[in-house]
Design a protein around this nucleic acid. Structure first.
Lengths: 161, 161
DNA sequence: TATGTTATCGCCAATGTTTGCATTAACTGG
DNA sequence: CCAGTTAATGCAAACATTGGCGATAACATA
């Protein structure tokens, strides 16, 4: 059984229905690998199933995010999604200049989470956590890496040390 | 000289022009006290100067945020702004259930910032930092405080300990 | 397998926010 | 104080995302 099928069974176990549209969106996000823009998911879905509606894509991704199947990252002011890897969860640092995203190990936030819970009873939603800021290259004034468009998989580097 | 005037002089020193619209928006945000929704700023601005355009309000607030005059907080999916108090900077925790916002002392993030810079050369933009999550009351299943609308100043509590 | 219930879909309109562009008005230097 | 330069405005249209609603199809039950 593939991991998509597991995710779909999980959805079903929560009482959500298993529709072809959901299967399709899940496959696309899974295949996409790195963070996919909504428009790209929509384009691919529509290619496979011409009746697919944009609103359905948004609703499906929101649902997936809600149940933890995908992770949402806001880049610039657009939403992007990647399959949540249960073994390799990570947060994101997004550069506000070049808009590249870097992965951040959860380890760096554990202490922060504990503090908020203990001090304020506030349970932060770190599943969907993203910090924006300035990355090394942009701080150095270096030109961003070639072809730095949001949907270019090369922009997604791994910053775990 | 009031602090608004200082802010405006600062804008001017950066090469931005000092327009009546900017003065107006700044005054409104300053008077508003707690976090103001864009629509509310727009309504008040339009009342004082009927030609005021929504786009101008957005552009002005974005500029103010960029230069650090105001702080932006995303609540639900709307943008809110408050005057940046240079002496009393703070971050925000927003409850995704009741949508109340709580202030968070910068102290809790200093270590996190240092780590990111040291390990990855990534300088996080904590001026505009917000964590979403579940607040004490909502976690306890308690009904949110009476009159919990976003623009109600009473919702803005101070969580500094 | 047939049937009923109701979640989900596709379509369309509304929302919140951003952008393009011609006009206006802040600043600059004479 | 006047004229030139150019940033900022107002307007309208674009864009990204969300919501309402009737029709459809997924699941449960028999």
């Amino acid at each position: 059984m593939t991991s998509h099928e597991q995710s779909l069974q999980y959805l079903q176990s929560l009482g959500y229905r298993l529709t072809p549209q959901r299967l399709l969106v899940l496959e696309i996000v899974a295949e996409g690998g790195s963070h996919m823009g909504v428009d790209e998911v929509y384009r691919q879905a529509r290619a496979a199933y011409p009746y697919m509606d944009l609103a359905t894509v948004y609703r499906t991704l929101r649902l997936f995010k809600q149940v933890g199947v995908v992770t949402e990252v806001a880049i610039g002011n657009r939403l992007h999604y990647e399959l949540t890897d249960p073994g390799e969860k990570h947060h994101h640092m997004v550069c506000r200049d070049c808009h590249r995203a870097f992965n951040l190990s959860p380890h760096y936030l554990e202490e922060f989470r504990d503090t908020l819970i203990k001090e304020f009873g506030f349970a932060p939603d770190l599943e969907h956590f993203t910090v924006s800021g300035d990355c090394v290259d942009c701080r150095a004034g270096a030109a961003p890496a070639a072809g730095s468009t949001i949907n270019n998989a090369d922009n997604w580097e791994n910053a775990e040390s």
